[in-house]
Design a protein around this nucleic acid. Structure first.
Lengths: 347, 347
DNA sequence: CTGAAAGCGCTAACAG
DNA sequence: CTGTTAGCGCTTTCAG
């Protein structure tokens, strides 16, 4: 291993005929009171050898690493990946790097947090799938000088930032939209109760029904567990179709479930949206590609990720704690799968 | 900021009534020649205060950070995200963390590499979208003691690992499959020429045609630029359908293009797969959710990512350079969109 | 306005 | 088998 030894600040100093502290000063922009000539010389040498100070050494002395952790609970749903892109982009612009970690449960998360602390990250953003977790390990973060913000998850403590969106209200809005389109029998393929967001969506479904003056019928709610097999979603859809009276619209637990529901409905000989309307939740990349294009509730994951990082950075740089709360709207993206407004009321 | 100061190895030593080196030894498993009693004592203290040595300090002295970089060229395609999950999983099991970076072009990539070097990463894996890039900045890595492996991209140098799959051959296999199903007029919605993989797929298309004794007709090849708007893909599909004789099957540049092609065909009144077959490339998460479920070429991204990390780790730990090359198969996943084998030859 | 020197928290010789 | 000590590469007082 002939590892060409890395260039050090000392060597730069020698080559530039100045002391290390001078080099350090130009490196860190403390260049106000410095002879222009010296500055030039140092800069030239630095550029010539492509010198870049070791972040590790710098981190040891400053206590900051310009690195943040991003811990994802659910790395499977591609939607959450978009959070990585957003955070990474903003982070790099601000001179930060991001270490991505996957933490399935609370146990895993504790371990990850411990690791990230050892790594000396300046802050951590947690993107949750909203499982109910033990949060004590998050509480210790601010005291240790590590900023933290959670996305889509209950706030663990006052000093921890939080960004959320309203699953409940947006699903209710979807119900209302369907109602306005003339639908009176609206079903819901609900997600697993283990997910906070799935429960919120179910609750939003009931809320929407209520606000439209529609009755809640338990037989119109079936399981569409997005962590499970698509066959189950199709089966639930078939059950819905077999009901008398059958629903004329369904809101899926997420876009995948909605896609399968739509297919199942179509394969049963019904046309979407003419005979049956389908709406999803997520607005995944494929939603506009389906036939018909899927109307869905757009979850503001990107915005949330950006907001979280911005919050983190703010709390990191400013003395006085900055913003600690951000609520984002989740809005219905109307495409083709629920038909146009020209539909007449039906029974 | 009342940052509770971090516990140091010295304090652990004092609390355990031993020297720092002893603590360091137990921390690093050099515990063979040590009184069991001492070992116990140190371990208890470490556990009690939840002490975890600073990776930063350790990194400074050892020259290793147990961190690897993962640089993605195309962070948009959710498919590449699965690489993150794979690498992160394996990495963490091996005691590594991964810093994820997005680098659009060569310029960006140079910058990222420089940054990652400053951060002291032990290795870097590059996931490419196969744009033709300047690779000189990769060449310097091994000499600097940083392992590197590229995925889906030409090998920049002998000391750099590489994992690839054969786009060409797999598309040819898809053509052959279609031919076996009775299709004689097979079209291709090609990707942009700026992408190496798109060119390889086009080449595979021609190769497949040849091996089936089918003529290449340039009017059967239209643009389906997956970086562009879906409207363009639909337009290209319409052009194909307007041809006389029209093709009876199409291979999309990727799954998204295929999805839109399928929809366009269906909206033109044709049934898929009965009247027209569609096959995609990627096997994205939504492929099995379409109606009908999309037959597609499964790109081994996960395996590639895993292979890349394994290679990296091998080259990192073993003295003698380990494996430097890995070719993975990309196989056709037959679902519903191209019909069963019962189709009879048509003209 | 520039240079010398003291660490940051840890590892790894090297003595005892 | 355990303790002392010299750095890793950098930042940052503090003198000159």
């Amino acid at each position: 291993m002939s590892s060409t030894r890395r260039v050090t600040i000392r060597e730069i100093a020698e080559m530039s005929q100045v002391s290390v502290s001078t080099v350090s000063n130009v490196l860190n922009g403390r260049t106000t009171a410095m002879s222009a000539e010296t500055l030039q010389r140092v800069r030239r040498v630095v550029a010539e050898v492509r010198y870049r100070p070791s972040s590790v050494a710098r981190g040891l002395v400053t206590g900051r690493t310009s690195t943040i952790g991003l811990v994802l609970a659910e790395i499977e749903t591609s939607l959450f990946f978009s959070a990585i892109g957003s955070v990474e982009h903003l982070a790099r612009e601000a001179g930060y790097n991001v270490i991505v970690c996957h933490a399935r449960g609370a146990r895993d998360e504790r371990e990850v947090v411990s690791l990230l602390r050892a790594k000396g990250v300046d802050g951590i953003v947690f993107v949750s799938n909203s499982e109910k977790d033990d949060d004590s390990h998050l509480l210790a973060l601010p005291a240790a000088g590590i900023q933290a913000v959670v996305i889509n998850r209950p706030r663990p403590g006052r000093e921890i930032g939080r960004v959320t969106w309203d699953d409940r209200k947006s699903v209710a809005a979807a119900v209302e939209h369907l109602h306005a389109l003339g639908h009176r029998r609206i079903a819901h393929l609900r997600g697993p109760h283990s997910r906070q967001s799935a429960k919120a969506r179910l609750s939003g479904y009931r809320m929407g029904l209520r606000s439209c003056g529609l009755p809640f019928r338990s037989e119109y709610v079936r399981l569409g567990d997005y962590n499970d097999d698509p066959a189950g979603w199709a089966a639930s859809t078939c059950e819905l179709l077999a009901l008398d009276p059958a629903p004329t619209a369904v809101i899926g637990a997420d876009d995948s479930v909605a896609a399968v529901a739509m297919r199942t409905v179509q394969q049963a000989g019904l046309r979407v949206p003419d005979d049956f309307a389908v709406v999803g939740v997520d607005d995944q990349m494929f939603a506009p590609l389906l036939n018909p294009a899927l109307t869905t509730i757009r979850l503001p994951i990107r915005e949330a990720a950006e907001g979280a990082f911005t919050m983190l950075l703010g709390n990191l740089t400013e003395e006085a704690g900055g913003m600690r709360d951000l609520r984002l709207p989740a809005q219905l993206v109307v495409r083709e799968s629920c038909g146009g407004a020209e539909r007449t009321a039906r029974n």
